[in-house]
Design a protein around this nucleic acid. Structure first.
Lengths: 118, 118
DNA sequence: ATTATATTTGAGCAATCGTTCAAGTGAGGT
DNA sequence: ACCTCACTTGAACGATTGCTCAAATATAAT
């Protein structure tokens, strides 16, 4: 009917398609992977992650490193907490955040190297 | 005036903040890194990348592996092309896509392992 | 108790995203 | 020349995102 139908006529190489379909992660795995990448795919969150990889910091100090409100930082910290990228401890009125996941640091380091050499 | 002012009173640990500020990537680097993570942070694109890491595929075969229209795949391929994650060659009417960047495969593999062991 | 400080939360809003639809391009086949 | 096929493109759409603002919570100090 229109140009946007599913390509119904032919799969060009069924063998390749079957092989790839079998090797790809499950839908659930794929979603979980994408969710982690998406978390790192925002400049603010990426900066937070890299800062916390270097030092444990309270929300206030973290805010001093960025150009947005405390509230915005706090919202992003919650998201990163939910994904277990970041953890925190409470001490009096303050909350001290740090990285909870070394694999994430590996990802970030690898990407930084990759970007640098491009 | 309200609770959402910049935390003006005090940076809790100026030394830490200075150290981290110096070690963090530049704004441009950070943006470039986030852009790559964001590209991988969508389930459709992540699946495309993983498929093309396994086999060179035409758009039609790629579409057979997903649940969306040819048009949607094509839009996402353009984005991945612009980021040099993916490359393509033309052969007659067909376009054969493949991965253009082994670092990206490293990232994806690492993340898949990480998700699997959680 | 009252006040101040550090952080969290919810609502609201503009901007961005991912998709579909419809039209366009360009190479082959008849 | 015409049509078909594989793909690309632009417009439009609802959905999601990331921020600010204002209010809430919770701990500590007076």
């Amino acid at each position: 009917m229109s140009g946007s139908d599913v390509c119904s006529t032919n799969i060009v190489d069924q063998q390749k398609v079957d092989f790839v379909a079998g090797a790809l992660p499950t839908e659930a795995e794929n979603m979980a992977m994408a969710e982690l990448f998406k978390a790192l795919g925002d400049p603010t969150r990426l900066r937070i992650v890299q800062a916390l990889a270097l030092e444990e910091l309270c929300v206030c100090d973290l805010t001093a490193l960025m150009d947005i409100s405390i509230s915005a930082i706090s919202h992003q910290l919650r998201l990163l907490r939910n994904l277990k990228v970041v953890k925190f401890r409470k001490s009096g009125k303050m909350a001290y955040y740090s990285l909870d996941d070394d694999h994430v640091l590996e990802l970030v380091t690898l990407t930084r190297e990759h970007i640098a050499e491009q």
